[in-house]
Amino acid sequence: MRRLGQFVEIIVGVAFLWAGIVKLMDPSAFLSAILTYEVFSYKVSVIASLGVPYLELCVGACLVFRVMKGGARLLAVGLLVVFVILLSQAAMRGLDVDCGCFGSSAKSSEAGFFWPIARDILMLVGIGLGMIAEENANGSREK
């Protein structure tokens, strides 16, 4: 169970690393994607367009290389919850947004929100699985 939890967390870490690298290759494209959500001001979006990719890179690297796991999990959960909220509000408002999740420039209509939201929820489940597996392993070691 512990191995499975670790494996799933590493997969989630790789996804974060990939998302960060793709966004950093073209921060302007990511900025355009953020603006399509119509939530943040331009200046906040500029900060996010450079801050979020590095946060994803750091979180991904920590999850993959198993360092500062607790902090990385906390941030991963925070980021994923924010992503789900942003996508859900866009779906509810019927916005035509560019997900920006993995640097894609394809716009999502209301029907197209399902996969990005499902993917984020799956990643949340993965983090949860990693935490439970580690707690179980720690618990049995204490016994």
Binding site: I47, G51, Y54, L57, K69, G70, A72, L74, L75
Partner: peptide, 15 residues
């Protein structure tokens, strides 16, 4: 929480 702060600061500096 402390680790999350460290990661955030590193990411912020890189940004």
């Amino acid at each position: 929480v402390r680790e999350a702060c460290i990661i955030s600061v590193v990411a912020g500096l890189c940004g």
